[in-house]
Amino acid sequence: MGALLEIRNLRKDFAFGSLLSRLRITAVDDVSFHVMPAEIFALAGESGCGKTTTARLILGFEEPTAGSILHGANRKGRRRKREKVWFTQGVQAIFQNPFETFNPLRRVECYFFETVHNYGLSSGRKGAETLIDETLKAVGLSFREVSGRYPSEFSGGQLQRVSIARALLTKPSLLLADEPVSMVDASLRMSIVNLFKRLRDEFDVSVIYITHDLATAYYVCDRIAVMFRGNVVEMGGVESVLMSPRHPYTKLLRASIPEADPSKRWKARISLTDIEHEEYLRRGCRFAGRCPEVMDVCRETVPPDVDVDGVQVKCFLYDEATMRTKGREVAADVG
């Protein structure tokens, strides 16, 4: 298949509480997807859906409770413990807050030189500087601009570019970007987002773009997986999933995005849930408590993943067998 990264049935449980009362929350539950080379893949959802935990699992900062994460050539089952994927598999990461990404008391170039030194990318100071300068040019900066400066001397947008440059130094094949532009001003976001597109087109870098901002995800990504409370509820091409959403949660999400167009104001009122943490502990479909089209089976059993025109939807409404027993038609394709 040639996938760069394959996630199979990934599961991560967190346990809270003391010896007497332990609460187990499944932050990531039976998640499977794959990322192809030179592709921007969005992992989208609201807070608490498990997207950041999935990223940490891929990076190896957390150990999965079950399931496997397979990188490129290494397709033989589970990774060895504590494998440093940034060294062995060419995976790097970019974080949300550029001012937290760097130590405010150190010059940013220190991280560049350390990376060069630790990965053995170049020998000698001169060689390192040339390499760093090249990489910075790729993001629209230069070594001269960056040299000798502390993080507080940059703007958010510039610093995020610096962060991307640091990640690019090791020529990764996969970049995990966790909300890379949510803390960058609206007027500067596009330049960074366009940068991701360039990386995909010119350098064959794949990006896992983690975000809750569906509008930007629509603009920049090729494929998208929508997550809700640890499950992937809908996954497919971004045009398909976001322009004609099928899963009731995706529909609700899409409809709730305030569009930058006064003629498209919200008409209907929605009611909000107060029972967030209960949703994690549900037996069946996690969205059953709020779904406008909920059926009894939804509360009891976890829905299967159904393929609807190339989009994978985790919902009984699209499952032929279930709908037939109810004497109903499978839900119409157009959301």
């Binding site: 900062f61 940034w86 060294f87 790097q92 990461a93 974080f95 807050n97 937290e100 990404t101 760097f102 130590n103 008391l105 150190r106 220190c110 991280y111 350390e114 990376t115 030194h117 630790n118 990965y119 962060s163 640091r166 990640a167």
Partner: peptide, 25 residues
Amino acid sequence: REFTQTAILSGTKTMRLVMKEYLPF
């Protein structure tokens, strides 16, 4: 804090990380 992760991703080993990143604080 996140810069710990950045240092780890830059390949920094534990002792050096503690000395260079945390000591200034």
